[in-house]
Design a protein around this nucleic acid. Structure first.
Lengths: 229, 229
DNA sequence: CCGGATCCCCAGGGATACTG
DNA sequence: CAGTATCCCTGGGGATCCGG
C-alpha cells in the first residue's frame, strides 16, 4: 500500500480511498447497496477486472467494506459497506456537489451512464411542494435506462427501475432531463432538446423546486473557467 | 487529462482532483493561503518537483487555482485558490474528519509533520468554555514546530508560529499533544508520553471540550478494523 | 454466468540533476 | 526560487483465460 507518510488526517484518508476507482467503488455501494462483483463491474464501466479485485481487497483490509456470502436466493458473495465505509457518505456528497459545477461542461455524448447515478442529483433537484396532494409517480427514461420517482406526502422517492402506468413520463438525454427538472429548459423547448414528455405535465410544477436546494446555490457560479484541449 | 468518462458529478470531480497529490495541494492552499512554489513543495514532503509543476498546471487549466505575480515585498508568483477552489473546502473537511478515524493507527514515527496540518484538528478539539475570562495564549511545539493558540471571548484562534511569553506551553509529539487536548491522556501521564507541559495548566480546563465536537462523534467508532502487512 | 487470476504494455509518478 | 529535463519503475488499462 502506497502511502503519503504524513501526519495529517486528510493524507490518511487519501491513503485509503485516494487510489484510482476507489471512491467510485464506494459510490456504487452507497447508491446500490450490497453488490456482487458483477454489479460493481457494471457500475464502473471501464475498470479492469483485476483492478476491481485489487481494490476490493484493499478496501476490505482497511475495514471500509466487508464481504459476505449471501444465502441461496443470491447464492454468491456480496460486498457491503462497513460502518466506517458508511461514514464516507458526507465526503461523497460534498465531492458530488462540487462536481455538479463541473458538469456544466460540454456534455460529451460518449459518456457512460447508469440510472442509479442520477439518484443523488434528483434528490437535490426535486421536492414535493404539495404534500396534501395524492401520491403521484414519474417515470424517467434517461439514455434508455429507467428511473422511477414517487411523490407522496411531502416525500420524494427515487430509485432505478420501472413502474407500469406512471402519471408522467420523461424520456431523453440525462442532461436534458436534469435541465428540464432544474427549470433551465422550459417545457416549451422540451422537443427541441430531444425530450419526450407525456402525461400530466402539471406534475412538474409540484416537484420542481421553486427555491434551489441550499447546497446547490453554488451552481450559480459566476467565475468563468477555461478549457484546455 | 485522464478521465473516467462517466455521467456523474462525483466522477467529474475526481477527474479534476482525483489524481495523486492534487487534493493535498489544495489542502496546502486552504491551510496556508496563497503560496509560492517552494511553500507548496515544503508542505508536500515527498512530492517530485515536476509533479508539483504538472499538478499546478492542471489545476489552473481546470479553474481551481490561479497564479498571480505578487508585487515587490514577495516579488514572485503566488498560487491562489479561485472561488471554485474554495468550494472544495467542505469536501476537504469531510474527508479529513473521516481520516481522523484512521489516525488511531500505529503512529509511525517516520511520518512527516508540518505545524499547519494541526490547525483543522485543533479547531475541532478546542473551545473556549469561559468567554468572559481574559485573553490567554498557548504555545504548542509539536515535533519541533511551533503552533500558537489564542483564546479570547469565546473564540479560538490557531496559527503556525510563536509568541513570546505564553500562558501555557506544551511540547512533544503531535499525537501526544492531541491526546492530551482530547482528554485521552490525563495530565498526570503527560510525562510518561514525553510531553513537556509548563505554565498555567488550569488553562487546559478552559479550552478542552467537555462535549466532543458533533462531527467528531464518529471517533467513538465501535467497529474494529484489521491490519494488513 | 460468476469471480476472479494472469499476462502484456503503456502512461503516470518517483528520484535526481540541471537551468534561467 | 521556480521550475524543466531525464531516467526509471510501478500502477493501471486491456485482453484473455480459468476454476466453480
Amino acid at each position: 500500500m502506497r502511502t503519503y507518510g504524513q501526519w495529517c488526517a486528510l493524507a490518511k484518508a487519501l491513503d485509503v480511498i485516494g487510489d484510482r476507482w476507489t471512491l467510485l467503488l464506494v459510490r456504487e455501494l452507497v447508491l446500490q447497496g450490497p453488490c456482487r462483483f458483477t454489479d460493481l463491474r457494471n457500475g464502473l464501466p471501464g475498470i479492469a477486472s483485476n483492478l476491481l479485485s485489487t481494490r476490493l481487497k484493499e478496501l476490505e483490509e482497511n475495514g471500509v467494506i466487508r464481504r459476505e456470502s449471501a444465502p441461496p436466493p443470491v447464492a454468491t458473495t456480496l460486498f457491503h459497506l462497513t460502518a466506517l465505509g458508511h461514514r464516507l457518505e458526507p465526503a461523497l456528497q460534498a465531492l458530488t456537489l462540487w462536481g455538479v459545477n463541473l458538469k456544466t461542461e460540454i456534455g460529451a455524448d460518449d459518456e457512460a451512464f447508469r440510472a442509479h447515478w442520477m439518484t443523488y442529483p434528483l434528490h437535490w433537484v426535486l421536492e414535493d411542494s404539495r404534500p396534501r396532494d395524492a401520491l403521484a409517480t414519474i417515470q424517467l427514461v434517461a439514455a434508455g435506462e429507467p428511473v422511477f420517482v414517487e411523490v407522496d406526502g411531502g416525500h420524494i422517492g427515487v430509485r432505478p427501475g420501472q413502474t407500469q402506468p406512471a402519471d408522467l413520463t420523461i424520456e431523453g438525454h440525462p442532461d436534458a432531463i436534469m435541465g428540464l427538472l432544474l427549470g433551465r429548459i422550459p417545457i416549451s423547448q422540451a422537443d427541441a432538446v430531444g425530450l419526450d414528455v407525456t402525461g400530466r405535465t402539471a406534475l412538474l410544477r409540484r416537484v420542481m423546486r421553486t427555491t434551489p436546494h441550499p447546497a446547490l446555490a453554488n451552481l450559480l457560479l459566476t467565475e468563468r473557467r477555461q478549457r484546455s484541449s
